[in-house]
Design a protein around this nucleic acid. Structure first.
Lengths: 186, 186
DNA sequence: ATAGTTATGTAGCGAGTGCTACATGCACTG
DNA sequence: CAGTGCATGTAGCACTCGCTACATAACTAT
């Protein structure tokens, strides 16, 4: 039953590797095909056209991103919200995650322009990240669901500031953000 | 002194208008030239090559973004940090700002890929936004500088979540974020 | 064995890419 | 008036783009 024939399934990992390294927007069929050891002819044959190739690829990348998060999930919950943020930001600095992060902003830009397939992938990745963060939240947090979303907002903001060279702004913002405690009782 | 001759200065507004509408990444010389009423030949003549055209264009766009913020600046400070956030997010929903926002994520993606000229433009735009926000901060805020950066982080995170279709996540995050008060005394 | 489906190679099409060669008008200067 | 440099038009180059036509091998079903 084991054949050497190419298929979407065997192609996608190789395509994903190329895209993670060289970007998604500028990716054209021939370089993609070369990276996968085929021809543009075969990519069109297996995916129909470039757009569905990109959509399928985005879905696949979202999946392996989820898997990467699954692997990186800590066995222990954080003690404080602040630790949540620092642990996640630290994990985002890992070289493994770097390629994902660079690609992520391209996906966000694609979402902003409503490119087909982008929003679905972004949604999947965000959902996974939310789940991941929720599992990391301190056990005794007074508002785990809301707190997760609050921290997620802060983390994404910090990641963005990092990428545009304002990591200092993010850092100072986090320090001023009073994350050590949970929300104050109202 | 008034001549009809084209120049970078007369070209840039027209180019910027085109880019704000159609995006930056996929912009190629001939459509750009058409939008500016010239030929690709002339664009290269005035800018030397496409890369410096894009860099100059990014600078120009950062400038008009600054001008737009200048115009939109409120005469009154906000009363609370929460009002800061809601006023800015509301302003980001304005149609005028929409085109900037879409382009912004393309600029962020360009920063992540280290494309030449992108980081400079992003830096200029971020600096202006920080200044704008600082002017909006409540008069009696206990930590205006840190608070500005904290809110900026949150705002950018919320904008990103909006763009990928997780505006609900951002909204719930903001509600859980305890922004009504300043930082609690430690 | 024959017919049909599936997978692949070769070649190329028409459109678009950034950029250049070349010619020409035009204003200005000697 | 000759010369010089700037601004612009026309044409095209070498290349890449997504995609297709066509041939053909390999396997499968009858």
């Amino acid at each position: 039953m084991q054949t050497n024939t190419l298929s979407r399934e065997t192609l996608l990992p190789l395509l994903a590797a190329h895209v993670l390294q060289h970007g998604l927007g500028g990716a054209s069929l021939r370089p993609l095909a070369k990276a996968a050891g085929t021809s543009d002819r075969m990519l069109i044959y297996h995916f129909g056209n470039k757009q569905t190739l990109v959509s399928d690829l985005l879905q696949y990348i979202a999946d392996i991103y989820s898997a990467a998060l699954e692997l990186a999930i800590g066995e222990t919950r954080a003690q404080t919200r602040e630790e949540c943020v620092t642990r996640i930001l630290e994990q985002a600095r890992q070289p493994t995650m770097q390629a994902f992060l660079v690609l992520w902003w391209e996906i966000v830009a694609g979402c902003a322009r409503d490119l087909p397939g982008y929003k679905d992938a972004a949604d999947k990745m965000m959902a996974k990240q939310l789940m991941w963060l929720e599992k990391l939240m301190p056990e005794d947090d007074p508002d785990p669901a809301g707190g997760t979303r609050y921290l997620m907002t802060i983390i994404e903001g910090a990641l963005m500031l990092n990428v545009v060279g304002h990591s200092r702004t993010a850092q100072e913002g986090l320090m001023a953000g009073d994350l050590a405690s949970g929300p104050s009782p109202s």
